[in-house]
Simulated assay, not measured.
Amino acid sequence: MNQVKVQFRTPQEVMDFTNVVSKYEYNMDLKKSSRKIVDAKSLLGILALGLENVLELCIYSDDNCDDVVKAISRYVIA
């Protein structure tokens, strides 16, 4: 499993993000806390977590997921 932190500022960014991650076969979740977890490919799920929050993206794969991280790099924060 790979994890990166992401942040969205506008609904358009969320829509662009879901369009990109939906192209990959990996299962992915976004976590706001240990109790709030949504499918990273769900537009409404991500919007329900709220904008401007730092979210943790979990990519479930044994493979190196650098291709996904590179594709969403504009949303990744340090």
Rank of each mutant, 00 (worst) to 15 (best):
M1C: 11
M1H: 12
N2A: 10
N2D: 14
Q3W: 11
Q3R: 11
Q3A: 12
Q3M: 03
V4G: 03
V4I: 11
V6A: 01
V6Q: 00
Q7P: 09
F8Y: 04
F8L: 08
R9T: 08
R9G: 14
R9E: 10
T10S: 12
T10R: 10
T10D: 05
P11H: 07
E13R: 03
E13Y: 04
E13L: 09
V14M: 06
V14T: 10
V14F: 04
V14W: 02
M15V: 15
M15D: 09
D16S: 11
D16A: 06
D16G: 05
D16F: 08
F17Y: 03
F17R: 01
T18W: 05
T18F: 01
N19Q: 13
N19D: 09
N19M: 10
V20L: 10
V21G: 02
V21L: 14
S22Q: 15
S22K: 14
K23P: 07
K23Y: 10
K23F: 07
Y24V: 09
E25L: 12
E25P: 00
Y26R: 13
Y26I: 02
N27V: 05
D29F: 02
D29C: 11
D29G: 05
D29K: 13
L30C: 11
L30R: 00
K31V: 00
K32I: 11
S34V: 08
R35C: 12
R35E: 15
K36H: 09
K36R: 01
K36I: 00
K36G: 06
K36M: 04
V38L: 04
V38K: 01
V38H: 04
D39C: 08
D39R: 06
D39I: 01
A40V: 04
A40C: 05
K41Y: 09
S42E: 06
L43I: 09
L43G: 06
L43W: 09
L43H: 13
L44H: 10
L44W: 05
L44N: 09
L44Q: 15
L44A: 13
L44R: 02
G45W: 01
G45Q: 01
G45N: 08
G45H: 02
I46Q: 03
I46H: 03
L47M: 15
A48R: 13
L49Y: 06
L49K: 07
G50V: 09
E52W: 10
E52I: 02
E52S: 09
E52P: 05
N53D: 06
L55M: 11
L55K: 02
E56T: 04
L57T: 06
L57K: 00
C58N: 08
C58M: 08
I59D: 00
Y60G: 03
S61V: 05
S61G: 09
S61E: 12
S61F: 02
S61W: 01
D62E: 09
D62K: 08
D62V: 07
D62W: 06
D63K: 15
N64P: 00
N64I: 15
N64L: 08
N64A: 13
N64H: 06
C65D: 05
C65T: 14
C65G: 08
C65Y: 06
C65W: 02
D66L: 03
D66Y: 10
D67W: 06
V68K: 00
V68A: 02
V68W: 00
V69D: 07
V69P: 02
V69C: 15
K70F: 14
K70R: 07
K70P: 03
I72C: 01
S73M: 15
S73I: 14
S73R: 13
V76H: 11
V76T: 09
I77C: 10
A78T: 11
A78C: 13
A78Y: 13
